[in-house]
């Protein structure tokens, strides 16, 4: 099936138990508390494409990333990787090595006591892809060259590198098992802009050269626009708008997407943007109906009680009553 998506996520939810310890709960006569971090999220990523999830802190985007690589199982819904369910795919090393992850903080994601060559070679050894010191050494050298470092850097420890170089090491490690699918969770958020440009360019080059598929997680809309083919905008655990990135950026439909885009500082200095009132509500006790209604300029009685389904508008899916009803001004 060459045309089947590489990854299909279908109505996936993840609930975390955030109750206090049992004894305290019993003494205070409290109910169990649960937090619905991801709520019926669906999307599909084609081979060689980049899908980005964007949203503010606490919207569940990183939880989706962790669900997709199998760091924890979904509470409900299914994730299929190359047509196989993720739990079945994770059980086979041959499939498992084909997905990998790049984390946000290159200071925390590299073991400070390991030499770079061992860090990069770990997936090779773990999957038994190569044996023999020389073969592994050659491959590590090649991987380091691929991300713009020198093979001799393999002898060094992570602390000898700057943040951008460390992120290159994480990318080399992620690439060592020759994956086809990479989950990148805020890969440049900890980096300065000039270094961010280097890493984003490197990721695009590698995607073209190796035909990689990316799930890209970020809060930075400008970075997301630069990287994505497809886009999903998340709010309080739900995708509120998804579709081709260019369409959403040129004509955002959901009031939340419009608000996010308007909130970005304007580099052309035309000014006159309208900051939006309010903050993201607690995901432990989300508002009924549409989760965005308390901040939405278009909210009406229906939005307060009934949760919107997805309305297809061209290639874009939007979860908004106002868009569905054609209400565009309050």
């Amino acid at each position: 099936m060459p045309d089947a998506p590489m990854l299909e996520v279908d109505a996936v939810s993840r609930v975390f138990d955030v109750s206090r310890p049992w004894l305290q709960r019993v003494l205070a006569r409290e109910e169990r508390l649960s937090l619905r971090a991801v709520d019926e999220v669906s999307f599909a990523i084609d081979r060689g494409a980049t899908l980005s999830l964007v949203g503010e802190s606490g919207c569940g985007k990183s939880t989706v990333a962790r669900l997709v690589v199998g760091l924890f199982p979904p509470t409900s819904g299914s994730i299929r990787f190359e047509g196989q369910s993720l739990s079945a795919a994770r059980a086979q090393p041959a499939l498992r090595r084909r997905m990998n992850m790049i984390f946000q903080d290159p200071y925390a994601s590299l073991n400070p006591r390991w030499r770079v060559r061992d860090i990069v070679a770990e997936p090779l050894r773990a999957f038994g892809l190569l044996s023999g010191r020389d073969a592994i050494g050659d491959r590590v050298g090649e991987l380091l060259r691929q991300v713009g470092l020198a093979p001799a850097d393999g002898e060094k420890f992570p602390h000898e590198f700057s943040g951008g170089q460390r992120q290159r090491i994480s990318i080399a490690r992620a690439l060592s098992s020759e994956p086809e699918f990479l989950v990148c969770d805020e890969p440049t958020s900890a980096l300065d802009v000039s270094v961010q440009a280097q890493i984003l360019n490197l990721m695009k080059d590698l995607q073209q050269r190796l035909g990689l598929t990316y799930l890209f997680i970020s809060h930075n809309l400008a970075v997301v626009r630069h990287m994505s083919d497809q886009l999903g905008v998340m709010y309080l655990g739900r995708i509120v708008e998804s579709g081709p990135a260019e369409e959403i950026f040129s004509a955002p439909l959901h009031p939340y997407t419009r608000m996010l885009l308007a909130a970005i500082p304007d580099l052309d200095m035309v000014g006159g943007r309208t900051p939006v009132a309010g903050e993201v509500p607690s995901p432990i006790d989300p508002p009924p109906g549409c989760p965005f209604h308390p901040r939405c300029p278009l909210a009406n009685a229906r939005c307060r009680v009934e949760r919107p389904g997805y309305t297809p508008t061209g290639d874009v899916l939007v979860a908004c009553h106002a868009v569905e009803e054609g209400r565009t001004s309050p």
Binding site: S162, Q196, A197, Q198, L200, L221, F249
Partner: peptide, 19 residues
């Protein structure tokens, strides 16, 4: 040149090599 602008999309960001 290295900042991704939201208003326009470029294929490649200008990068300053080194640190």
């Amino acid at each position: 040149g290295s900042i991704p602008w939201i208003e326009r999309k470029v294929e490649r960001l200008r990068q300053i090599d080194g640190a």
